[in-house]
Amino acid sequence: MSSESRPTGGLLDAGLEGLSHNFLTGTLEGLVKWARSHSVMPATFGLACCAIEMMAAGGPHYDLSRYGMETFRASPRQADLMIVAGRVSQKMAPVLRQIYDQMMEPKWVISMGVCASSGGMFNNYAIVQGVDQIVPVDVYAPGCPPSPETLMHAILTLHQQIRDGELTRRPGQGAGIVIEQVGAAGPTPVVLGRS
């Protein structure tokens, strides 16, 4: 297409002919999902070891802001993603549920680490054996603690889920996606019991 035949300027300059390149068409649903998946705001819900890795993921080396995820909201009312980072004790469980209830719909939950997902190695009186007993979970990130790479994998999986999943869903139902651990191996594998 030569520059002469191509209408220049916006709709006002080119009239109706400008429509051919000034509009994108799509479904409203797709647009809403696209917007949602690109503006997820996590609530700070650091509990234990995983919280340190969650903060590290927001640090300069891993840089969560690449995905528009760096604004951790201090108030649950401004957040729509809860990253349960760490073990949930019996004393914390009501608090966690209350904070979840304070978040606005639509909201999602990432269960970060084995303690949040299943109680992990602490199978005792004090720890809730899986945060999915209290809140619905969308993505389970494995690891103890999950490396920041795994957390990012979980977040990107959630983004994908928001784009592909239902626009509306019954409250109280998580997607329950289980992901694999990534980036756990060091630069060189550590060999135990070598001698």
Partner: peptide, 9 residues
């Protein structure tokens, strides 16, 4: 709020 029962475990 983070009592894990580690001494028991």
């Amino acid at each position: 709020y983070l009592h894990t029962g580690m001494e028991r475990t």
